[in-house]
Amino acid sequence: MNTPFFSVVMAIIRKDLQAELRSRELVATMLLFALLSVLAFSFALELDRLAREEVVSGVLWVTVIFASLLGLNRSMSIERENDSIDAMLLTPIPRSAIFVGKLVGNYLFTATVGIALLPLMTILYNINMLNLWVIATLLLGTLGICITGTLLAAMTVQTRAREALLPIVMLPVVLPILLAAVKATTGIINNAPVSDWQTWPQVLLIVDIIYLVLCLLMFSYVIEE
């Protein structure tokens, strides 16, 4: 546990957590946005109980993805603004450690927001979402979102359009995750038999692994200068 790789990862996570604890900027923004989005959906879709059961997982996942966009953009532009990414690149540390460090930080924030949404939606939509399997799906899904998001945000903050470009490049790529996550969540909250939805968390896990390997390999190309 004392390898240079691991200590770099821990240092980056500690830095991000400390900055977040002091400013409470990221989680607060994401959480407020998620709350507004869930409320907006509940006004926009005036639904009876049956229809709610069908759409509620869609509402959850679209909200989580949009909230994650906010957090990912901010987390990467902080590194750009103060040229701290350049400082990190100057040090002799593996690039993949920077990726893992930023990823874990982003993941902690996004997963926190996602899990905080569950009791909220349970109350607002009157459907029990506090289920261990929903939480497991949420953890797997947000992991995939953060893996691709961390890589793509590192790219888009270096472009001319900056924040505007991340949703456009990220949404298509997270579509397989959205598909599997929504299918799994819908099955779980509707108390469908396990055999109906058990493949979807597995699909999520496989997609997560594929994306993790791809993004780990490609991250060093994104931040070289």
């Binding site: 790219m155 298509p172 790529v173 994306y211 490609m218 190309y221 994104v222 070289e224």
Partner: peptide
């Protein structure tokens, strides 16, 4: 930079083709 980022995204984008 353009070529590098495009290469990375071109590889990642193929997941939608497989989907």
């Amino acid at each position: 930079t353009r070529r590098r980022f495009a290469s990375v995204y071109g590889i990642l984008a193929f997941s939608t083709v497989i989907l």
